[in-house]
């Protein structure tokens, strides 16, 4: 592999966007989860939420593993964003398109992780697009453009392996494209 042998990619985004699901979907081994009882049903009506991190591993080529980390979504756990973002080779922001505050959330996470991991690829996965108002994807692209962030944005269902993998492979492709041409394509 032409990029480093051990890669760290961080999944982030608001509560309920699918970070734990994405890692569970693609991890080769049973992921480490830190799910706890969710008391805040107003923000997102689900039984459990991540309190510290998710961790999974994905082999992308012989001898090359991607370590997948998921952050907690809630602002009160933002100290974990800093810890997990350190040393990340790429960041995947997951957004719930059906959330009324999807654009605000996208702006917040994109800006925050641009600061934490300034030089690393950022890729956005937008979920539940079918439940969102029409034109949500162009709107979200506009949100990113307005803050000067030009990155790939995909409509995804992270319960599907190929969708979750698409996000990871896009990060890897961006990393690879940064290499001198002679060093590419050895995976």
């Amino acid at each position: 592999m032409s990029v480093p042998q051990e890669l760290k990619i961080v999944f982030t985004g608001p509560m309920g966007a699918g970070k734990t699901t994405a890692i569970t979907t693609i991890s080769d081994c049973a992921p480490v989860a830190t799910e706890v009882h969710n008391n805040d049903r107003q923000t997102f009506a689900k039984d459990s939420t991540t309190a510290a991190l998710d961790f999974g591993q994905l082999s992308v080529a012989p001898g090359t593993a991607v370590r997948l980390y998921g952050t907690p979504g809630q602002e009160r756990f933002s100290f974990m964003w800093e810890i997990l973002g350190r040393g990340a080779m790429g960041v995947i922001v997951l957004i719930d398109a059906s959330s009324p505050s999807a654009a605000i959330e996208l702006k917040h996470y994109a800006e925050t992780f641009r600061r934490i991991s300034p030089h690393q690829p950022l890729v956005v996965g937008v979920g539940r697009v079918a439940l969102a108002p029409e034109g949500i994807l162009p709107a979200l692209l506009g949100t990113l453009a307005a803050i000067g962030i030009c990155v790939p944005v995909f409509s995804v269902d992270v319960r599907k392996r190929e969708d979750a993998l698409l996000l990871v492979h896009t990060v890897l492709a961006i990393l690879e494209a940064r290499l001198p041409e002679s060093e590419r394509g050895r995976t």
């Binding site: 706890v36 309190a51 009160r76």
Partner: peptide, 16 residues
């Protein structure tokens, strides 16, 4: 508030 959030993270991690 911050110590509360960190406590639950560490507790969850030690649980794992």
């Amino acid at each position: 508030a911050r110590i509360a959030a960190m406590s639950s993270s560490i507790q969850a991690l030690s649980q794992a």
